[in-house]
Design a protein around this nucleic acid. Sequence first.
DNA 1: TATGAATGAGTATTCATTCAT
DNA 2: GATGAATGAATACTCATTCAT
Lengths: 207, 207, 207, 207
Amino acid sequence: MVRRLTSRGLKRRDQLINYAASRFAENGFHPTSVTEIVNGLGVGKGVFYWYFDSKEEIFIEILRGAQRDLRRYQQKAIENESDPVARIEFGIRASIIWLANHPDFFTLLQFAATDEKFSRLIRAGEEIAVQDVAQHIREGISQGRIDEGDPLFLGHAILGVTNQLTRVLLFEKKRDPSVVADAVVRFALGGLRGFSGVIAAGAMGGK
Amino acid sequence: MVRRLTSRGLKRRDQLINYAASRFAENGFHPTSVTEIVNGLGVGKGVFYWYFDSKEEIFIEILRGAQRDLRRYQQKAIENESDPVARIEFGIRASIIWLANHPDFFTLLQFAATDEKFSRLIRAGEEIAVQDVAQHIREGISQGRIDEGDPLFLGHAILGVTNQLTRVLLFEKKRDPSVVADAVVRFALGGLRGFSGVIAAGAMGGK
Amino acid sequence: MVRRLTSRGLKRRDQLINYAASRFAENGFHPTSVTEIVNGLGVGKGVFYWYFDSKEEIFIEILRGAQRDLRRYQQKAIENESDPVARIEFGIRASIIWLANHPDFFTLLQFAATDEKFSRLIRAGEEIAVQDVAQHIREGISQGRIDEGDPLFLGHAILGVTNQLTRVLLFEKKRDPSVVADAVVRFALGGLRGFSGVIAAGAMGGK
Amino acid sequence: MVRRLTSRGLKRRDQLINYAASRFAENGFHPTSVTEIVNGLGVGKGVFYWYFDSKEEIFIEILRGAQRDLRRYQQKAIENESDPVARIEFGIRASIIWLANHPDFFTLLQFAATDEKFSRLIRAGEEIAVQDVAQHIREGISQGRIDEGDPLFLGHAILGVTNQLTRVLLFEKKRDPSVVADAVVRFALGGLRGFSGVIAAGAMGGK
DNA sequence: TATGAATGAGTATTCATTCAT
DNA sequence: GATGAATGAATACTCATTCAT
């Protein structure tokens, strides 16, 4: 939808995005109806469709906004650091802090990754984040600080640890963000250094 | 629902579970209708509600079955191994192989974790798996093979790496299961060993 | 929609078709809502969609049924007559009688011809009727009873006269069907015989 | 709505009428939204409601304008002809030429005739046109050039032939307007002369 | 005159679930 | 055990119209 918005319109749009995000996070995307959103805001149904073409569209806008914001936060956390391993660490810590400050978005991103309609977007965002990390990993490898290994694999591994520990420790067990971050960093940097003595590679066979 | 089923009835129930699982995996839980399931099987709607109280119930049955099956597979892979680190490795490898053989269930479990209605079940299953691993981790720590650290944290970290790399490398990038397993094991065992030189713990602060 | 219907189901379907036809005829297709139809029948909304995929579909069924019925009626009126001009006359009279007995369908067919979604169907039905007449016209021409002329043009001309006089005389001015039929037949057969002295063919030019 | 319009305002009004007419003709009246009209013109919604009270009103304006214009065109074609049969012929030819030059209006008039909201207007317009023709028919009868018969019936018959052949031959089969006009004139004048030997008047009976 | 914003009843359609047979 | 039929609340979305500026 292309619409020239006045400042009043921009405010409305933001209001819709924020409220919808909170409802989606609490109830889930499918179970949250447009009616629920507009009623919660005390506006008519047409308002919603004045700003968005569909329920899908507003969700995508929410996701994009979250991805953009998270990425900016990560980059800002890194910008003055030249050591690649430190950049990785700072990136992890920034992510966790951002997620702690935007718990709704965490839920939303997790769900979106499982829904065919949005997963492409999430994948793309993840890929960008992983590319960022991969670059630092490559530098770390060339400096001999990180063991050889596919930087993209390693980047995804870090992402996996970060997400899982954030969900469990931060959101479920309500640990302090810095505690969570310490745990993630410890595991992730250890993982990057790798483990020479793989015991039984391929030893178990398939089905 | 508790119903005494004939062997024919058991077969029907299985048929429903399997077909529903494939539909849910392909379309998502919410977008898949009961009508779609019974039509796809060429039976009437009564059949569905003879065996299950609701669409939620069949989904829960699917999830439970998947969790049970995966756990059995993991345990079988471990039963003759006494070395704790090897048990961890074998557990990881077994998980990846099982997931490779049940791609539908992977999708389903991922989604279920994000839906309030099912997440409790998923969390419980995860917790059990993590407890298993934690036990090995404890042994490993006491043998001095793994660095000090909260075994539950570490268990979740392993789970996070496994899930993420399975999704990305196995399902998206179609890598061979053994390649994926090698990557996961390498990172996980490295992560367990930890990283003594955390550079900036807590240095960045919150918002 | 392909559905095996019980006799109860067939009855419901008929009921829906008949009631919907009357509503469409009275209010028009667009202004008549599915809700109005099911409420008028005192059934749930699902009933409608059990038998028809859409509002369009039921309308098409109505049109098809009307076309089929009208055609049968025309053919029955003609079957024992061998004289081609008499066949034309009998066909016209039969059409008018049928329309007099199915005033709703007349309205429906007229509307359908103007709506892109249904006009193809109406055109096809008209074409069939016109082909029938054209055959008799050809015979009439070869017997020297009808002047030379494109039989399809003439068939459409007859259709036009029939429709217009039926609408105006029969439905608006409430004339007796036989009076209407006499008027149509008189004009149509005169028109078939043609007019040798066209006064100013092409004399007026285009725009 | 009565509004004193500046010349700029009159232009806007015309623009709206013309564009709306083209949309209505292409999509149908009901399916065309006011939004579609104003967006297509790149103006705000207020503009529409400044000039017209409702969507119905603009449609009625369109119809009235078309009727007025057609009637003027017919009258101009006839004004210098005194022979009644020739006046009929010229009227028919003029109508077909006008319709050929205003294909949108043809569609619109056809639809309007089927919609309760507008049919009164269309009927009135038709009645005027038919009265015009009826006058010539009466003259023709008194001159012994046209057989006895109700002039209004005959007038409607001519209208029916004209409309049907225009639709089929001109718009669907893309015949040249003069060819269409020849066919209509031939049939209409033949029809006016009538057919003495009605074979089976009333012989078939009603239901 | 004109705009962007807002209204809210209305639309077609879906779907989990129940019922009668 | 199983079927076709029925329910009716709910859903996403539309649209003629009005309002504030």
